[in-house]
């Protein structure tokens, strides 16, 4: 199947530091791809490169075979939607107005939103189960509600691929679940692909089709959750000892923290033997 988004040996640097080096990645249709990695590994940067916001020093970013740089901004926005990690709403737009903004890439300069655009926006709100919030001011919403509204906005863009930068960052476990459920259902039912940068290894392992771990700007590992989420893999990437086993309820990989220098309390399921005594 033709990948929607291709990163071919992409490298990027800020000033003198190489934030991304030689990353190859493909995202196909109807895939939920999770990007994991420690802080500072370049996950957000990678996502921005995928979204066309940052231009790589070397390598190519292709959308359906065409270089992203060849697209006009508006055109690209009709294909790729981006939901950032933090949102500052300086002015109090209503929820509906925010979601309607997602229709902008499809409108000409002086064109106003039509009935059809309105319907698309409402439908997007329905999909994220936030239709009842439509008339509220965006400032009044809780973190979880805001996140859903922004995903609705991304949906309203009618894109082929949605990029999410830590969508569950400030949410409690219930909302974390909800968000992952939501994006998983989007991939299933709405025929979009989603790439999500996240720290929630368990949830990513549970919901994503594929996972990628970034470490120090390089691709550390890539593959199915089972392949990527292993004790050795996670411990090495995050530089912290973990134990990975199976979640008895879901069958997905489950990550448990063990401690920095491998202070294991014993038991056969322990990982490697402690290297040095403290």
């Amino acid at each position: 199947m033709e990948p929607i988004l291709t990163l071919d040996t992409v490298s990027y640097r800020y000033e003198d530091t190489w934030a991304i080096q030689g990353v190859r990645l493909e995202v196909g249709a109807r895939e939920l791809v999770g990007i994991l990695g420690p802080n500072g590994s370049g996950k957000s940067t990678l996502l921005k490169i995928m979204g066309g916001l940052l231009k790589p020093e070397s390598g190519a970013v292709l959308y359906a075979g065409r270089p992203v740089a060849a697209f006009k901004r508006r055109e690209l926005a009709q294909k790729i939607a981006f939901v950032a990690q933090e949102h500052a709403f300086r002015f109090s737009f209503s929820v509906l107005e925010v979601v309607l903004m997602g229709r902008s890439p499809h409108l000409k300069r002086l064109q106003f939103e039509s009935e059809r655009d309105l319907e698309i926006a409402l439908q997007a709100l329905r999909t994220v189960d936030a239709e009842r919030l439509a008339a509220r001011s965006i400032h009044e919403l809780s973190g979880g509600e805001k996140q859903r509204v922004l995903i609705a906005r991304a949906l309203a863009q009618d894109p082929e691929i949605i990029l999410l930068d830590e969508p569950t960052a400030f949410l409690d476990i219930k909302y974390k679940m909800e968000i992952f459920e939501l994006i998983s259902s989007l991939v299933r039912d709405k025929q979009v692909s989603v790439v999500a940068v996240t720290h929630d290894i368990d949830l990513a392992a549970l919901y994503c089709n594929r996972l990628v771990i970034l470490e120090n700007g390089r691709l550390f590992s890539a593959g199915t959750p089972a392949e990527v989420v292993t004790s050795e893999g996670i411990s090495a990437a995050y530089d912290c000892r973990v134990l990975v086993d199976r979640n008895p309820a879901t069958g997905a990989p489950r990550v448990s923290l063990v401690g920095r220098a491998g202070r294991c309390t014993g038991g056969p399921a322990c990982g490697k033997a402690p290297s040095t005594a403290y």
Binding site: L53, R73, R74, Q78, A84, H87, F89, P105
Partner: peptide, 12 residues
């Protein structure tokens, strides 16, 4: 008003 990056991503 949503930020340079957000606006950029929406085609501005």
């Amino acid at each position: 008003t949503l930020g340079d990056e957000a606006a950029c991503h929406m085609g501005v």
